[in-house]
Amino acid sequence: MNKQEVLEKVKTIVAEQLGVAPERVTPEANFANDLGADSLDTVELVMAMEEAFKVEIPDDEAEKIVMVQQAVDYISQVAN
C-alpha cells in the first residue's frame, strides 16, 4: 500500500471517527486543534487505525502522532 492509499484510508477513518467532513482531513490537520479530537477520541482513533491497517501502534509512538501526516508516515513505515 503506497502512501497515497494510506492517506485516503486514514482520511476515511478520521472523518468517520471524529464526525468531520473528509475534506477537512488534510495531511497538515492536527487531530486536537483542527479536528476537535479530545483525549478519548485520540485513543479510539489509534485503535481504529490499528484495526484497519492490521498494525500495532505502541502508546509511546501514538503520543507522537498529532497530525494526519504523522499517522500516515508511521503506518506506511510499519505496514510495509
Binding site: 483525549s39 478519548l40 485513543v43 479510539e44 485503535m47 484495526e51
Partner: peptide
C-alpha cells in the same frame, strides 16, 4: 486492549 476508551464514560 480493544476495549473502547468511551466504555466507562
Amino acid at each position: 486492549d480493544r476495549v473502547s476508551p468511551f466504555f466507562i464514560p
